[in-house]
Design a protein around this nucleic acid. Sequence first.
DNA 1: GTCTATAATAGGATAGAC
DNA 2: GTCTATCCTATTATAGAC
Lengths: 189, 189
Amino acid sequence: MARPATVSREEVLDRLQKAFRACGYDATSLADLAEATGLKKASLYHYFPGGKREMVLAVVDKVMQEFAAAVAREHEMSGSAEKRLDLFFQVLLDYFGTGEELCVIGNLAVSSELPGVAGAVASGFSAWMNVLVRCLREMGVPKEEARMRALEAVALFQGSIVLTRGLNDPRIFRQLIKRMRVRLLSDVS
Amino acid sequence: MARPATVSREEVLDRLQKAFRACGYDATSLADLAEATGLKKASLYHYFPGGKREMVLAVVDKVMQEFAAAVAREHEMSGSAEKRLDLFFQVLLDYFGTGEELCVIGNLAVSSELPGVAGAVASGFSAWMNVLVRCLREMGVPKEEARMRALEAVALFQGSIVLTRGLNDPRIFRQLIKRMRVRLLSDVS
DNA sequence: GTCTATAATAGGATAGAC
DNA sequence: GTCTATCCTATTATAGAC
């Protein structure tokens, strides 16, 4: 059998994600996606009849599932809220790396709006914030303050990616996230 | 004279900027730009032979000039560094409004990279940071700390726009900027 | 499921009249 | 300086063979 192993749907989604994270939704063409996956355009349409929009929504869906799984692991973990928060942070850092690649959700928030995408983006940010808020609440941070700190943290994640790319300096992302973590946890009992 | 008043180049640039800030560089087509300016595509090419790329670079150039002018006003002002910083912040808030429109520079940082654009983006972010660093230094903040706070502030500006759009809540931008200003100035003599 | 081929359209850009 | 008309390419999308 000279036939190359069929790529799994998961593998296809991973490669699509990689492409979207490199250039953003608007600047990534079907030709780019075909090259990234090793499939021809027509084959991509077999997996995703809705085209590019369905592809990116599927990627977002996968990201959200993996995120939910990480949150569940964090939630079921024993240990202090701070320790669990650290684990959650580590998951995020593993995902974002040096901050040179885009956040698919964040990118969609500033791309041409497509039907069904706005809701997914809002859900993504909300889920992210909710994890932070819950941990902070457990640490004794008042509700409103916890919400603001979570907003601030997620905004800083997003902004750090923008600056890392804009100033073309991969050190920036980690520096900013490190500081952000300190701020997030400042003055908690 | 039934002839409508010719739009000035400044007016054209303003309208181009408005279009780019609404949808971002990649998602804004020449047709959009023609409609936004009231000119036909061919007329746009008369002003900007380099096409879309030249248009956005001209917009960036204009933004930078206005920014430099605001910085100069701040710099020549009498009063404490904090007071001058407040004035500078007010200029930024006037420009960004509710944070629903994009920052042209920030958007270019996460768009398909074009020749000559990366440098302009980096210059823009650097100029922005430099103002903040100078004021903080005057207030007695050590060099490295001042740089980090400036980075943090600009990143939060950018991230606030992302979250304002992603969560579709125009209150978020002002809330985050207000907090950011506090953090920027915390523990200065 | 994957491909080749092709359609249909949108996007960027130019020529040349007025 | 502005326009109409046009060109060319890229892009999205589909048909249908294998």
